[in-house]
Computed example of a mutant assay.
Amino acid sequence: MEWLQDGIVLTVRPLGEGSVILDALTRDHGRHLGVVRGGGSRRMAGVLESGNLVRLTWRARLAEQLGSYQAEPNQARTAAIFHDRIKLASIVSLCALVPAITPERHAYPRLFDALDALTDAASDMTTLEVAAAVVRFELLLLEELGFGLDLRECTATGILQDLAFVSPKSGRAVSLSAGAPYRERLLRLPAFLTDANVPVSVACVADGLALTGFFLDRQLLSPHQKALPAARLRLSEMVAAGLGSD
């Protein structure tokens, strides 16, 4: 068995003397693991950084085996954002979240395309834009796994304007007027998620991360005795403390 495809490095863990198990996201083969011989070397450390695009050749005698990877550098994307702690934390967070939630070897082309586009463009985006893109990606992740939120109209009145909250029970939007009496029980809906023309603010990104984090935890993690990855929790803390570069 053999296939050749580009993959986004998600996580790497040591295996024996000098080898690693690489978890990568591919477009046609989904999230796929394989052993990289010599992957623990200093030369390969920069290649197998979370968020990098690598050219993968996977081989195994049988399809169900773990198999081995030959990983060649394609685009060293992480190095371009290493100076920006929020951008780096954003990419690392997504690369930790995808394997925590998605099943192995199940193709999600939209997820691959979205993560590929974000990791490719992150160096040219502002810090705030990258953090906001994390929220949008997590909404897509919920949708792809069958738990998408309905942010099109108010669940109580059907109106399309002034959507300000999300019901934690239904995952549907609630307008400002309908939700005001119950605001303490509702999740805040950042305006940039319903109107692309609205400027993104730090507070809105924080609200967005709280929104997606709630549903990721309730629908996809807690039922399997899992929690949000530490990298995702750190990102929320960093955004809450204020965006900026170090």
Rank of each mutant, 00 (worst) to 15 (best):
R183W: 14
V166F: 06
V130P: 03
R105T: 11
G208R: 00
R110V: 07
S167P: 09
A191H: 13
A164M: 13
A178F: 06
C95A: 15
S167F: 09
S177T: 14
V205T: 03
D162H: 14
Y108G: 10
A164Y: 06
L140Y: 04
L163M: 05
G179I: 00
G208K: 03
D116H: 15
R185A: 09
G179L: 01
A196C: 00
P190L: 06
P199M: 10
R188L: 14
T157N: 09
S201G: 10
G171K: 03
A191N: 10
E138D: 05
C154S: 12
F214P: 02
A96I: 12
V174N: 00
F192S: 08
F192H: 12
A180V: 12
A206T: 01
L97W: 02
A107Y: 08
C204A: 15
D113Y: 10
L128P: 00
R183D: 07
A173E: 06
C95M: 14
S93W: 02
L193V: 10
L193Q: 00
L97H: 01
A117G: 13
V92M: 05
A100H: 07
L186F: 00
S167E: 09
A100E: 10
L151A: 11
V200Q: 02
A117F: 09
L187I: 02
L140D: 01
D113P: 08
E144I: 08
P190E: 10
T194S: 13
A114W: 07
K87C: 12
A173G: 07
Q161R: 15
G171Y: 02
D124L: 10
F112V: 06
C204T: 15
S170Q: 10
A96R: 09
F137I: 15
S177E: 14
S170P: 01
L151E: 10
